[in-house]
C-alpha cells in the first residue's frame, strides 16, 4: 500500500486544501447550523441567524429528550426499520442464492423481475398500497403494515447487490461441501450465508437507513402515537413553527441514529457497493 501511494499524484497544494475546505463547509454547514441552533434561544436565532450559541442553552434539547412523543417516534422508527431490514435481507438472500448458484432455464428472466422492480417507485403504487394495507389487510397504523411493503420495495436492490456476492463464492468450496454430504439447503445456511456477510451488512444498512428515513408510506399509514421520527419532525416543525430552536433540537436528535449507524458501517457499505459495481 505505502509504496503504491507514494507514486500517486498529488498532494497538498493550497488550492486543493481550499477546495476541500469549501466542500466540507458547504456539506456540514447546514447540519452544524441545526445542531448549534438547538443550543441557542429563539431570541438569539432572531438576532443573528448564523451566530454561535451565546450563552449555550440546553433547554431545547432537554425538552425534546423529556418529550414522551419523541421516544414513541424513536421506538416506532426503530422497530419498523428492524422488521424491514430482517425481512428484506432474509428474503433477499434466499432469492439471490438460486439466482447465483443454480443453473436453470428461467434464471435470467427471474433475475430481470428483480431488476425491473428497481424501476417501480413506491410513489406509483402508493394509493392502492394504502387501500390494500388499511382495508384489505387491516394493518393500517401498525408496524408490520409499514415494514412489509417497505421490505418488498427494498427487495430488488437487495437481490441485485447480493447476487454477485454469492456468485463470487468459489465452486470448489461448494463441491467440497457436497462431497462431505451437505445438502443444498445446508450449503446455503453454513457456507453461502457466512461467506456473504459483507453483502448482507451492506444491504441491511441500506434497508435500515431507507426505512429509517422513509416519509411517504408512513405519512399515509401511520397516525398519532404510531408515527415515525420523520413524520414527527415534519409535524413538529409545522406545529411549532415559531419555536425555531426547538425544531432544530428535535431535528438534530432525530438525525443521530442513522448518522451513527452509517459512520460505524461506512467502510463496509462502500466495500459492498464496490463489490456490486464490479460484479
Amino acid at each position: 500500500m505505502a509504496s503504491r501511494r507514494k507514486k500517486e499524484f498529488g498532494g497538498g497544494s493550497p488550492l486543493v486544501y481550499f477546495l476541500a475546505l469549501a466542500a466540507v463547509a458547504l456539506t456540514v454547514g447546514p447540519v452544524l447550523y441545526g445542531a448549534l441552533g438547538g443550543f441557542r434561544s429563539n431570541e438569539q436565532l432572531a438576532r443573528d441567524p448564523a451566530g454561535l450559541p451565546d450563552p449555550w442553552v440546553f433547554k431545547n434539547y432537554s425538552n425534546v429528550i423529556s418529550n414522551p412523543d419523541f421516544w414513541h417516534y424513536a421506538v416506532n422508527s426503530t422497530v419498523i426499520a428492524l422488521i424491514t431490514t430482517v425481512v428484506a435481507v432474509l428474503f433477499g438472500v434466499m432469492a439471490a442464492y438460486p439466482l447465483a448458484r443454480y443453473q436453470f432455464k428461467f434464471r435470467e428472466s427471474l433475475f430481470m423481475v428483480f431488476v425491473l422492480g428497481l424501476l417501480f417507485p413506491a410513489a406509483v403504487a402508493i394509493i392502492p398500497l394504502f387501500i390494500l394495507v388499511t382495508r384489505d389487510l387491516s394493518m393500517g397504523n401498525t408496524w408490520w403494515g409499514v415494514a412489509l411493503p417497505q421490505a418488498a420495495f427494498a427487495l430488488p436492490i437487495t437481490v441485485v447487490i447480493l447476487r454477485p456476492f454469492l456468485m463470487a463464492i468459489p465452486k470448489e468450496l461448494e463441491e467440497a461441501a457436497l462431497i462431505d454430504g451437505a445438502s443444498r439447503i445446508g450449503i446455503f445456511r453454513w457456507l453461502a450465508l457466512p461467506l456473504s456477510v459483507p453483502g448482507l451488512i451492506t444491504t441491511g444498512v441500506l434497508a435500515f437507513v431507507g426505512s429509517w428515513n422513509a416519509y411517504l408510506l408512513p405519512l399515509l399509514l401511520l397516525q398519532d402515537d404510531m408515527r415515525t421520527l420523520p413524520l414527527g419532525v415534519a409535524d413538529y416543525s409545522t406545529e411549532h413553527s415559531a419555536d425555531t430552536a426547538g425544531v432544530l433540537a428535535f431535528t438534530t436528535l432525530a438525525m443521530i441514529p442513522a448518522l451513527l449507524l452509517f459512520l460505524t458501517m461506512q467502510r463496509r457499505i462502500v466495500g459492498g457497493l464496490q463489490g456490486a459495481v464490479k460484479g
Binding site: 466540507v24 456539506t27 447550523y33 428515513n213 416519509y215 420523520p230 448518522l259 452509517f262
Partner: peptide, 17 residues
C-alpha cells in the same frame, strides 16, 4: 466520510433544516 453525510440524512430532516 463528511461528504457523504447529507446523503444519509432523511429527506425530511434535511428539508426541515
Amino acid at each position: 466520510t463528511v461528504v457523504f453525510v447529507p446523503y444519509v440524512l432523511a429527506e425530511v430532516i434535511a428539508g426541515v433544516v
